[in-house]
Amino acid sequence: MATVNVSNQMCRPYVGDTQELELEVDTVRALINELERRFPGLGPQVEESMAVAIDGVIVQDTYLEPIGPDSEVFLIPKIAGG
């Protein structure tokens, strides 16, 4: 199962003190759905405002990116640039 870190401040209103979860998800889409099922409101928050770091690779605005069974998943604010 993937280890999903939800400790970022942007998750806190939804997850409270929860820091990490073990989730059986194989794509970002599945991750968003599962987070929404467990913590209503977190799914749209992740989808609209956050990036997902999967094994150190930052992805954002995508449903399709695969998540491995032993992946480290970290939720962080979305990144832009100048």
């Binding site: 870190n5 400790s7 970022n8 770091a53 094994d55 150190g56 690779v57 930052i58 480290e72 970290f74 962080i76």
Partner: peptide, 10 residues
């Protein structure tokens, strides 16, 4: 390395 902002760097 686990980055100060969270993820493991690659």
């Amino acid at each position: 390395t686990k980055a100060a902002y969270g993820p493991t760097l690659k």
